[in-house]
Write a protein that binds this DNA or RNA. Structure first.
Lengths: 257, 257
DNA sequence: CGCATCCTTGAAGATGCTCAATTTCCGTGG
DNA sequence: CCACGGAAATTGAGCATCTTCAAGGATGCG
């Protein structure tokens, strides 16, 4: 019995029930009733934290669970036949990874921790059957997948038609917004990824990202020192990035080109 | 009663049950039992066909249904504050559009027919409740959303790290593959979108797309005349595009460039 | 038959990349 | 504690790809 107690204590470091998790307004639990939460809790496995550069899964591996980031951050990336990597997303606490693997049961990407990171593992078969029983869970799962599609579309827009400055501005705004939703300062934060990672994600050369950072700093838009970023002029940064389709004012007049 | 018969006949032009639809191995019905299909049929509304340039929905409108393309094709696009459009996807028969709107109940994109196009309208609230009852439907819905995420990631990779040639090659391969899945020739097909649309989607200038087409034609890769495309050398086209993480045969021999 | 749209082709110019050197930072070991 | 070595970041110069601007040709619809 004492050994059992010991085990519980050991695991307790990682075991925080969804109901007590600060992320439950962002993550899968959003909108779920308290007693339904218990059923979700029951299928979730909390894993030991990952160290920096450690992989959560590799491209090509079999898919059997999705993961929710609990703390830290991850990058997901594809590897070309020539060994070059293409980063396709950075994932903050409360975000799900692995959704792209549902389609054919194999992970199309790899996921790697950018810093010490802990995740919740959610076996997909159990999640599917539970979703059928809990409408709010099903709804939130669909919502989060939709959100990922939506976010990817924003990234595609940035890659397709924005300049280096605009891409970096949009990237910083995305980070800032998401950090704010998680209770962090939107103006001062640390980049958990390298310049190379940012460049890779944004389809730019490492050197270009570095140059744009200095240019923005000289313009008084922000201060950046190594990983530490401080946004000094949100408004001008937003103007730089130019967000499409603000879901806002229906413009009755057509622009004639 | 005769009037009722008349109505049925009038609608019959559009009414093809999912069970009789040639797309049911690609679309939502995949994997569903025959009697379950009837329940899906019951919530689907077949709309009158859209003419070329007609919109299925506009960015900013309220979301209450997803759509399955039955015949023809659509483009989805965002509109920036300056009125420029960014195309984010082309959609062929059997593919779903509107999945990106689940997240916040408003369409982030507009959808426009590239040619005469008919769609099935699937009210989302009904789809959600039916999914909870039919596991195979829920599974296929999740699969198709996952597939969209996966496809968007491929596009992001192309935009981030590929040259103009590689992007166009990857685009043509994607079209070819999807057309083949739908029972069309993978080697000879018509582009339903303009050069400008392709360029916009690929993040290139219209002129660049035109030039790359001619270059590829001179290289014997393909023949292109206006909208008509014939792929002459699939292998070389694939080599051009370079697909990442083929989740497939570990090629023992590496192509040296 | 004529106009408008779409596509093609050419020439000049810009944005961002590659190559290369230097500096800063940080962890490791003396 | 300091020194060292490697990784990450910065900065510069030349260059390539793709864009922009511009003109001309083809196609299709009224």
């Amino acid at each position: 019995m004492s050994s059992e107690t010991k085990t519980v204590l050991t695991l307790k470091r990682f075991k925080v029930a969804c109901g007590d998790c600060s992320l439950n307004t962002l993550c899968l639990p959003l909108g779920m009733a308290a007693d339904d939460l218990g059923r979700l809790d029951a299928i979730i496995e909390r894993k030991r934290p990952l160290a920096r550069t450690e992989n959560l899964y590799h491209c090509g591996e079999q898919f059997d669970a999705i993961y929710a980031v609990r703390s830290g951050s991850l990058k997901t990336y594809a590897t070309s036949e020539h060994g070059e990597e293409q980063i396709l997303g950075f994932h903050l606490p409360g975000e799900l990874v692995g959704l792209d693997a549902i389609a054919d049961g194999l992970h199309p990407l790899s996921a790697q921790a950018l810093e010490t990171t802990s995740v919740c593992e959610i076996p997909f078969d159990k999640l599917e059957s539970l979703s059928a029983q809990l409408p709010s869970l099903q709804h939130q799962l669909l919502r989060l997948m939709s959100l990922e599609i939506h976010d990817d579309q924003k990234t595609m827009t940035a890659l397709a038609q924005k300049s280096a400055e605009e891409r970096l501005a949009a990237f910083l705004i995305s980070l800032s917004t998401r950090l704010q939703q998680r209770g962090f300062s939107p103006n001062r934060f640390n980049l958990s990824m390298s310049r190379g990672d940012i460049a890779n994600y944004l389809g730019l050369a490492l050197e270009t990202v570095s140059r744009v950072f200095t240019r923005m700093q000289n313009d008084g838009l922000l201060r950046v020192e190594r990983k530490a970023v401080e946004l000094l002029d949100q408004d001008r940064l937003y103007a730089y990035a130019g967000t499409p389709c603000p879901s806002a004012s229906p413009q009755s007049s057509r622009h004639s080109s």
